[in-house]
Design a protein around this nucleic acid. Structure first.
Lengths: 142, 142
DNA sequence: GTAACTGCAAACCTTTTGCAGCTTG
DNA sequence: CAAGCTGCAAAAGGTTTGCAGTTAC
C-alpha cells in the first residue's frame, strides 16, 4: 500500500492525515495477528525519535474503529484488548495456548447452521465470533 | 441441588464449606446466563444482612475456576468479565446485541471441521469458543 | 490448633478524559 | 483560521493483593 492510497483512504473517511495515523494503520495492516494498544505504542515509539503517547494510540484506534477501518478483537490477552485491520471479510482465528500466536483461518464452517438456528430460536442472527484454541506446530514439539 | 450434595462436592475438591461459597455456587448454578463479579456481589449482598466483600467474590471465583467448577466466559460485558457454572458439556451462547440477554444453544456445529482444520494447519486443536450475536425475539419487535 | 477464608484498604493495570498547545486542510 | 490532533497528567473502572482477624475442620 502506497502513501497516496492511504491519503486517499483517509480523505474518504474524513480523517486528517497525520504521521501517527499513517504509522498505526500500516502497522496493523502489516501485522499478521491482532495486537494490543501497548504493543502498538511500543512499536511506533521505536520507529520515532520521540515516543507517541499511549492515549493517542487509544484515540486513533477508537477513531479507526468508528470508521470501520479497525476491529477490536474479541480475543483478550491478559485483560488487554487486541486490535486488527478490518479486512472486510469474514475471518476467524486459531490461537496457540502456549505461545499466544494467533493465525487467521480461511473460510468459515458456519453457513447453513445460522439459518437453522434462527428457525430454532427466533433470533435474528447478525454476526458471530469463533476462536479456536490449540497448540501450534512448533509448540507441540516441546 | 441439596445442601449435602454441595458439601460433598466441595469436600471432593478440598474446599472449605462456607456460606459465601455455597451461595455463590448456587447463584451461578441457577443463573440462566453468565454474570459478572459485581452482579454476584450485589445478588449475594441482598440475601444477607451484611454485604459480602467484592474481593471475596473475586477470590471465590478464582478458586472455583482453578477447581474447574466455574468458567470465566469469553464474553465480556463493557469490560467486565462474566462467569458461569462449568456444566461439563460443550456449550455455546446466543447474545442479543440490544438487551444483552445471553441464551445457551444446544449442540455444536463444529465437529468434523476441527479435524479438517488440524490437517490443514498442523495445529493440535484443544478447544473453541463460539458466540453468536443477533436480536432476540422481543427486541426484534421494537 | 492450624490452615484457610474474609473484610478492608490500598495498589495495580488498562483505558478514558479534560485541557492547553500545536498541526492539518 | 477553524477544526481536530496530540501530549500530559489525572481520573476512572475493574481486578488483585497484603495484612490482620475470624472461621472451618
Amino acid at each position: 500500500m502506497y502513501q497516496d492510497e492511504l491519503v486517499e483512504l483517509f480523505k474518504k473517511h474524513k480523517l486528517k492525515n497525520t504521521n501517527h495515523r499513517h504509522m498505526l494503520y500500516m502497522l496493523l495492516k502489516e501485522s499478521k495477528q491482532p495486537i494490543s494498544a501497548e504493543e502498538i505504542y511500543r512499536l511506533i515509539s521505536v520507529k520515532l525519535d520521540k515516543p507517541i503517547n499511549l492515549s493517542t494510540v487509544y484515540r486513533i484506534l477508537e477513531t479507526f474503529e468508528q470508521k470501520g477501518l479497525v476491529l477490536k478483537s474479541q480475543i483478550n490477552l491478559n485483560g488487554k484488548a487486541l486490535y486488527e485491520i478490518n479486512h472486510m471479510e469474514h475471518r476467524h482465528h486459531l490461537i496457540c495456548i502456549k505461545c499466544n500466536k494467533i493465525s487467521p483461518i480461511k473460510g468459515c464452517p458456519l453457513g447453513d447452521y445460522e439459518i437453522e438456528l434462527e428457525k430454532q430460536t427466533g433470533y435474528k442472527i447478525l454476526e458471530h465470533n469463533l476462536e479456536i484454541k490449540g497448540l501450534c506446530p512448533s509448540c507441540q514439539k516441546t
